[in-house]
Design a protein around this nucleic acid. Structure first.
Length: 359
DNA sequence: TCTGGGGTCCTAGGACCC
DNA sequence: TCTGGGGTCCTAGGACCC
């Protein structure tokens, strides 16, 4: 059996909760919920729940208030500590990058793709798990696939601490009868729109009329979703350094905000923070957006391209404040956000793919 | 039941030009 | 007076991901 090209998807098990338990060994075995500032009465959501907490139906993205209601008395709520997870993440990625013959593409704090040519991908997956555990005392699961889509989906079948292989050969056996929602890139909205066409399962999506999908979702996404049904996806693992296309800052207010003065102050502050992020990258700003969430939950965005790329803070702040005039400051505002798109380096003709996830 | 913060990419529709 | 067809750029909004 000769060597061939494989994609491995490495995903840390309950990463954030695991990092917290390493620092606080006395929390081992207890339901740990990390989110916001660690105060379950605030407007915030769960970043990660430990397996013990998941047993009570608590999961990522859930409002902390709901989590608090479901949690048992011995549950622990902790604040998010970005720097700690960043450090742990760097250790994990450096460890994996050092494996012989692999190309590593970072997907997020706690996951990455490894590209490797081998006759025995399971053995590489084992090496990856052992190396990460030895270096960081953290466990991970590995999906093995013949492309990124299959590797990514495979990981879920390997959790926790295991591995799973998903390829063209077993794709329909494993995924054919499962709901389209389980595909990477199909969320609740698309799941519903597909169901309206009688498409509920992965196999039905694979067999769907491309013309119907294109009419519903457009030329690019329509074609993409059908390919997802077949488990088709990109195979190239790209280790080129990440270049952010934009930076943004947003805050949800614990008490709704209202009035022009409050809006002006908040937008100026956010724009200032965004400028710091862009300045760190050393790149000019080409476009500015404002995001407003009016209570109860109506989101609006307002944007404008700058007349020319901006390299100074006051241009960004002024542009944001000009856009802020279009906010209805008489209404109750839950959230404000400022986003700056930056000029990309010349020759940014990388192929885009609807599979997202890089954060 | 109440919905964070940081991102990426896609699409619709209008303005404008030839 | 009523009016085509195509292309590009821009804004707004939506969906998804971790």
């Amino acid at each position: 059996m000769g060597a061939s090209a494989w994609v491995l998807h490495v995903d840390m098990d309950q990463f954030i909760a695991a990092v917290e338990v390493l620092r606080h060994p006395e929390l081992a075995g207890r339901p740990v919920i990390v989110g916001g500032r660690g105060d379950p009465t605030e407007r915030a959501v769960v970043s990660t729940a430990s397996y013990e907490a998941r047993a009570y139906g608590i999961g990522s993205g859930m409002p902390l208030k709901i989590a608090a209601r479901k949690a048992p008395p011995d549950a622990v709520f902790l604040p998010v500590d970005h720097e700690a997870y960043e450090r742990a993440s760097t250790e994990v990625m450096d460890t994996l990058r050092a494996l012989p013959g692999v190309v590593l593409e970072v997907l997020g704090w706690d996951e990455c793709f490894l590209g490797v040519t081998t006759a025995d991908p399971e053995s590489v997956a084992h090496d990856a798990q052992r190396a990460v555990l030895a270096a960081t005392r953290l466990h991970c699961s590995v999906g093995i696939g013949d492309n990124k889509v299959r590797a990514k989906i495979a990981t879920g079948f390997g959790k926790p601490r295991g591995m799973f292989r998903l390829t063209e050969e077993n794709w329909f056996d494993v995924m054919g009868e499962r709901p389209t929602r389980e595909l990477w890139g199909v969320g609740t909205k698309v799941h519903k729109r597909l169901a309206a066409h009688g498409i509920d399962t992965v196999r039905q999506l694979a067999d769907a009329d491309p013309a119907v999908l294109v009419a519903e979702f457009g030329p690019r996404m329509g074609v993409w979703y059908r390919e997802l049904g077949h488990g088709i996806g990109p195979r190239v693992v790209d280790d080129s350094p990440w270049i952010a296309r934009s930076h943004s800052r947003e805050t949800t207010y614990q008490q709704n905000l209202t009035g022009p003065d409050a809006v002006h102050t908040a937008v100026a502050e956010l724009a200032h923070q965004v400028w710091d992020d862009c300045a760190t990258d050393g790149r000019a700003v080409v476009r500015v957006h404002l995001k407003v969430r009016y209570a109860p939950f109506e989101t609006k965005t307002i944007g404008r391209k700058l007349a020319e790329p901006a390299r100074s803070e006051h241009v960004l702040v002024d542009a944001a404040l000009a856009l802020a005039q279009r906010i209805d400051s008489e209404r109750e505002i839950r959230l404000l956000g400022v986003r700056a798109e930056m000029a990309m380096p010349a020759g940014d003709e990388i192929e885009r793919t609807p599979v997202r996830g890089r954060i």
